[in-house]
Design a protein around this nucleic acid. Structure first.
Lengths: 257, 257
DNA sequence: ACAAAAGTGTTTATAATACACCCATGA
DNA sequence: TCATGGGTGTATTATAAACACTTTTGT
């Protein structure tokens, strides 16, 4: 894009956007048995981390805006994000940080007005396989990084609250919806799936019971054993039977209604 | 706030509002064993029914706006509404209806622009006791009415979808949260509570099992028998033990997290 | 042979479901 | 007294939870 300037914020035309409305994305990733969250570092002096977020075009569906914004800001290209809550407190944006940000870029009057506005932000979430994501921070970001839940840095505005809410949302969903299709590699062990569940729920589960409960769902295909491994019995490899997985999703959603 | 902006569409000053953002309320009521929904009829030629909705003041939290809008448009004064989803499709508002509405009022340029805008609307819901509600339609409404779910008339825009989504939301919640405190009269029979559940879930439940399941929650106070009644054994009257009810609410919410 | 982790089985407790029985009441 | 609906009991099945036993594998 525009190479001559260091910050892409300067170039966008506020007239193209719905004023006062933004979207923010909570992206959960899973790797090495750990649940992680994606954050961007602002290109301003100081340590300002934020969720990937952005604005909504006037002729764009809100859901579509979330997908586009995520793609633009992180490089992650996924066809669906789940809306989980809209954040509408008047003072949800911290003015000090805002001013700092504005000063760091070549502001014009219109931009100041735009950023000075009160914004209502709709939160979207998704769970992704970290290894399938090639991250590309956009021009307004200095860094992009996966953080473990426990050592997530301070986030600007109410973004920390967004993360908490998103996590609760997923924890709740996990009770009646299958999970893992886009989070785990094609083939995985039951141990890996269990670690995913444990990292989302934040507690240990019984190995035997977990295995039986999962297999009873009948959404798995069992493959040959994996050869590599430690000094122990080699575990089976599974993959999702995508048809049955989708059926279960549909059934569960239908059941709720 | 602004006194004269209070009720009528003609008088309100669009400058006071966040542009492009609205709230709509799905209010469920319960009476005579039937679940009902509140709708307003627009003061325009034709039959245009809509959910009670409105706009958000620039210095007002989104949650607060929903409470105020409901009060202004229906007279219902409740301290809390539950946000369930934000509707952000570009074409969610039907332009024909919109134009009809604009023509029926004394439009000025600013108003036309305002209503011509694309609006993103956040849906809020609540469950209320119909007998405790004294309804007062606002000046922009010709009528206000409770409708049975089955004979709900056509609603404008995407309001029918909002109702469906809200209902699913409540059906889902009922599985892990107690319900009924603000929906039933102070004293009620188990039969009445069961009818409430059945009307929300849309299916019959077993009488004996329902009773036992409820009583095991230990959130009820059992009173003396009701004297009136048909040719049968008089049922017990119950009321909610509000402390324990709240405890259960908190516990369930805490459990999800 | 042994430790480690996988696979599977057993036991117990709890919850869901279906339905049966008796009781109180007004007509 | 009898039909009606209310309160309660029981038997069956399903699910959850805790934990034990056996198997495979590399060292």
């Amino acid at each position: 894009m525009q190479e001559k300037t260091k910050n892409s914020l300067i170039h966008f035309d506020v007239n193209n956007f719905v004023s006062g409305q933004s979207v923010d994305c909570v992206i959960f990733g899973f790797e090495n048995g750990e649940l992680k969250i994606l954050a961007l570092k602002w290109k301003v002096p100081g340590e300002f981390w934020a969720l990937p977020g952005g604005f909504v075009f006037k002729d764009e569906d809100l859901d579509k805006a979330a997908i586009r914004v995520l793609k633009e800001r992180t490089g992650i290209d996924i066809p669906f994000l789940e809306q989980f809550k809209t954040f509408g407190k008047v003072d949800r944006r911290d003015n000090d940080i805002l001013v700092k940000n504005l000063k760091s870029i070549e502001v014009n009057k219109k931009m100041v007005d735009w950023f000075g506005n009160r914004f209502i932000s709709t939160g979207y979430l998704s769970l992704v396989d970290i290894r399938k994501c090639s991250l590309t921070a956009d021009l307004s970001s200095e860094a992009i990084e996966w953080f473990n839940l426990e050592d997530l840095p301070d986030l600007i505005y109410d973004h920390k609250e967004m993360v908490k809410t998103a996590l609760k949302y997923v924890q709740n969903q996990i009770n009646y919806l299958p999970i893992g299709l886009n989070l785990l590699p094609e083939k995985f062990t039951m141990k890996e799936l269990q670690m995913l569940y444990e990292s989302i729920l934040g507690r240990k589960l019984d190995r035997g019971n977990f295995q039986r409960k999962m297999l009873k769902l009948e959404i798995f295909i069992r493959h040959e054993k994996q050869l590599e491994g430690g000094a122990h019995k080699a575990p089976y490899l599974y993959s999702f039977d995508k048809e049955k997985y989708q059926e279960l999703l549909d059934k569960a959603i239908g059941f709720v209604s």
